[in-house]
């Protein structure tokens, strides 16, 4: 064997030994976690930083103005942009209105139905349909239901001799109608979780309270409420994180109208950046929304059990 071939072989075996050391089982944990972290840094965090930088630029594709540094100009414009504040108010009203109603109805129903019910499984399956249904389908379906002249909702109201609604056709009722759709979609979610929560509560404290002569209201306030509270907080925060993003259902139902009465901030940011091509300003709007959901997320991280808990 020639010496150069021998050298090659030792070089090879060195490479293999090196590879063996690098890919050794000792580092297995890094090979498991690093790809995901890298993916999210590259596809999640990098665009996020990109977008942050973008919010300090004038980048108006349609106006064919050269790209220039804007400093805080986009954020300054945001402060005085009435349309933005209207969409921000719409988003806040939507989030608080929808979630308040969902909790009231969901919790109320859970309390009412907290006992052994036969055929619970069937009801559960049927109630799960709205929360997983394709948002585009939900939006169109409710557009049909709300139709002022031919829709079944007004028909039923008329049949019951109740006043009919203007629903999506008027700026006065459109946001409420969008909220009702969300309440339809998510009340079952709140209901199912709180019912499961109530049914998993220990019985002894309630029995002891009854022996001591506590009224139903007292045992609700002093026992049920404190015990169910952590679950309620998690449900509310998770709903908030999702509701702040609202786009698809409104897009299909009203496209933000009539006027801008149902336009959410996500829709406005999309309009500004992807229809008017004012990319810098659109990024600034998106960032304000990010700050809002970051606050909710930080609160959520404080209460979300790291151990998979509450069964």
């Amino acid at each position: 064997m020639s010496s150069s071939a021998l050298q090659m072989r030792t070089a090879w075996s060195r490479v293999i030994a090196w590879l063996g050391r690098v890919f050794s089982d000792r580092y297995a944990k890094y090979y498991m976690v690093v790809p995901t972290v890298l993916y999210l840094l590259l596809i999640g965090i990098f665009p996020l930083i990109f977008s942050f930088g973008l919010s300090f630029l004038h980048w108006d594709v349609a106006a064919q103005r050269p790209l220039s540094f804007a400093g805080l100009a986009n954020y300054a414009e945001l402060v005085g942009d009435d349309r933005f504040w209207r969409t921000f108010a719409n988003t806040i009203i939507f989030v608080t209105g929808a979630i308040t109603l969902e909790v009231i109805f969901g919790f109320g129903l859970a309390l009412l139905l907290n006992r052994d019910i036969r055929g619970q499984g069937i009801f559960r399956v049927l109630l799960m349909l709205p929360m997983m249904a394709t948002p585009v389908a939900v939006g169109y379906t409710w557009r049909m239901l709300y139709h002022v002249t031919n829709g079944p909702i007004n028909h039923i109201l008329r049949a019951l001799h109740l006043p009919v609604g203007t629903w999506l056709s008027s700026g006065k009722t459109s946001l409420l109608s969008v909220i009702i759709t969300d309440v339809w979609q998510w009340t079952p979610f709140v209901f199912i979780i709180l019912l499961a929560g109530l049914q998993s509560l220990p019985r002894e404290p309630f029995e002891a309270a009854a022996v001591d002569g506590a009224s139903r209201l007292q045992s609700f306030i002093y026992l049920t409420l404190p015990m169910i509270w952590p679950i309620l907080v998690i449900v509310i925060l998770l709903r908030m994180v999702e509701a702040i993003k609202i786009f698809d259902i409104i897009f299909v139902m009203t496209a933000g109208g009539p006027g801008i009465s149902t336009e959410s901030s996500t829709m406005y940011a999309k309009l500004v950046s992807l229809t008017q091509f004012r990319l810098g300003y659109g990024a600034a709007i998106a960032y304000l929304l990010l700050v809002l959901s970051a606050i909710v997320f930080i609160i959520l991280t404080r209460v979300l059990p790291t151990e998979v808990g509450i069964e």
Binding site: V33, I45, F50, S51, F247, K270, L274, A286
Partner: peptide, 30 residues
């Protein structure tokens, strides 16, 4: 994991799901 604790890595990963997608959509478009 020592340098960054497991909990921190997990929350970093979860935070990516909580972002309003519009913040990503604009840079993705470009």
């Amino acid at each position: 994991f020592r340098r960054w604790k497991n909990k921190d890595i997990a929350f970093f990963i979860l935070s990516q799901r909580m972002l309003p997608p519009i913040v990503l959509v604009i840079p993705y478009f470009i």
